[in-house]
Design a protein around this nucleic acid. Sequence first.
DNA 1: TTTT
DNA 2: TTTT
Lengths: 150, 150, 150, 150
Amino acid sequence: MMNRSILIGRLTKDPELRYTPSGVAVTQFTLAVDRPFTNGQGQREADFINIVTWRKLAETCANYLRKGRLTAVEGRIQVRNYENNEGRRVYVTEIVADNVRFLESANTQRDDQHNQDIGMPVEPSRKPMNQDPFSDDSKPIDISDDDLPF
Amino acid sequence: MMNRSILIGRLTKDPELRYTPSGVAVTQFTLAVDRPFTNGQGQREADFINIVTWRKLAETCANYLRKGRLTAVEGRIQVRNYENNEGRRVYVTEIVADNVRFLESANTQRDDQHNQDIGMPVEPSRKPMNQDPFSDDSKPIDISDDDLPF
Amino acid sequence: MMNRSILIGRLTKDPELRYTPSGVAVTQFTLAVDRPFTNGQGQREADFINIVTWRKLAETCANYLRKGRLTAVEGRIQVRNYENNEGRRVYVTEIVADNVRFLESANTQRDDQHNQDIGMPVEPSRKPMNQDPFSDDSKPIDISDDDLPF
Amino acid sequence: MMNRSILIGRLTKDPELRYTPSGVAVTQFTLAVDRPFTNGQGQREADFINIVTWRKLAETCANYLRKGRLTAVEGRIQVRNYENNEGRRVYVTEIVADNVRFLESANTQRDDQHNQDIGMPVEPSRKPMNQDPFSDDSKPIDISDDDLPF
DNA sequence: TTTT
DNA sequence: TTTT
């Protein structure tokens, strides 16, 4: 009915641009968002929140965002579920972003050696989308054209 | 760094008040939040979003919220993880609410037989908290005093 | 850069649908939003927040919203200024809404005599837009096609 | 009932710390928030949104924020009104912030000569609060202990 | 495992 | 100028 989230945090990795079978661009990344308090041991923890963007915004994110960059994200919470390769139902919560702000552009970044070497904007790595975008090990596709938000 | 979500939806079940070992009140419930578009088959789907409240707010929620009630929730997204009884790491995403608004009070509710029979406010069911609050089958506790947000 | 507000409150009056000279629909209304605390005299005050909607949303709001109705509004804060008939610069702050939720539809409304008499949806009153939509007395137009947000 | 705004923008001036007669700290500043579109002449405009903070947050803001700094603000919209020296009722809309994030700390700031000269954190200027904090010309006080949000 |  |  109403579903709005706004987050500010830092990318845990470079984002990765993929394409659905019908050719729609999708970019996923994770934002580390510091908690507003410290835990029992006096350490500040973070929530690691998955973000998905589609189409033109996906391409802009892939082009301009990099690991560690401070970023603001606005979107809606989505809870998808799919059956994994062991036949178990897995629930994935993610933010479907419709507004992303790059709070650190390349030239405000201090020790990003990669940017200095390469120049910005950089072409993102493009992989065929045959992986669970939120994990590192091989799993069957779990994002398809059915997941398109519009 | 910044982490705020606002949701309006309906409770999928009555909320349930529990207590941590040290006696702190926790109430959890799920909000069905309709998506702003229809899927490929022309049906409107919903996201089922888990909500946690603590302390006094937990008790108010347990007292006044009921299955089906339209409710607004404001809070931060939290991603917890714990090891389940099969030794697998399970990720739970939920909203830690600090503001909950009851958009339908008992007397604006039309066909809530339970309310008519019982009168409002109603004492919530109180169970010892020895269950995963997001499931119906027996699992070891996965909320403890360590999860307290402050 | 980022600008998002979410409000829940009640309409202080029926909304009014108007049209810019070029024929674009605009609806404005004010939301009374209760403050989360009481003042020095123990009374709860409210903030009276102006809302503007454009185009199709303007027409839906004019059709379905009525004085007193509980309503959720999402949009961006806008600060316009114009010169009034005395040559003074007047600042107007309002929410340009892109998402409005009717939390009380006509049939959940208890004592809205107007709705019972007339049936819902009702055709809104349509006035030529030759008035300051936030006041009741005659002033020159201060919303024009230049104010169109897109 | 619910009232939440989140803004990202840049300070139009250094903030100014003041004190109410009873000694409570208040800091006010204005955020320039770029609009998400360009106007008829292809220029990007901004909304200038007034922010108020109280107590400890007021002191932190006065200590760390400076003109031009990119800043995220979270709070509630408040509409105050007071009678000005000509006997007219003036409406002031502002965000009462409860969360402010400094997105550019002193050392990520490139051409802030003031910071380089002075070193950060800097003691803010402290003026007795006998001015309308949102204007430059002399007017009677319009913030008092009655405006305290809690 | 889901609400109207 | 304000709503329940």
